[in-house]
Amino acid sequence: MQIVQIQNVDKLYGVGAIAVQALTSIHLDIKTGEMLCIMGASGSGKSTLLNMIATIDAPTHGTLNIAGQNPALLSDTDLSTFRNQTIGFVFQSYNLIPVLTAFENVEYPLIVAGMPKTKRTQQVMKLLEQVGMLDWVHAYPNCLSGGQQQRVAIARALVSQSPLVIADEPTASLDHQTGTQILDLIRQINQTHHTTFVFSTHDPLVASYATRLIRMDSGRIVS
């Protein structure tokens, strides 16, 4: 079953002489449970494609279908709800909310979803346990190492039990050992929950964890 279907998508930034073609004629289908890795040099269009799949950027031409929905047809509120329930995000620079503790960061998507407190707490604690962060539940992000922050970010991405997780260079800011731990964790979650992961990287080690690899160059999928 396809969780992502991209047909003939172009993305153009700017207009006229300063227009930049970020994506050209992208066709891509991603199956549920895949670990798809997008590789390419800086400026090749990896992040733009990820943003498109993540519904935070819209194509200039072409159609997108994510988990059975065309994001272009959703209102802001519906799109927010859709993201909350369907897509998890992991960023290179973790992007935790600095004024919230590890627990609160993971809890946030569930609050937005309106989940009752008791159920919310159980789910957050379960995820924090899964990523090995139970001892740091009440720590603020500035008290955590890069690896710990990324674990919290992964817990946050998974807490809503989203079927699709987008990870933009998730280990780029981590040392080799921590990066490997994070990748092992992602693979374990992929295998146990059949969560679909789509991630970008420059790193061949990271790419080796993928079940499928695509390469991008100048806004096109080249292999």
Binding site: S80, T81, F89, S160
Partner: peptide, 8 residues
């Protein structure tokens, strides 16, 4: 916050 589902 928006990515995590907060509406405008």
């Amino acid at each position: 916050l928006r990515i995590m589902g907060s509406p405008q």
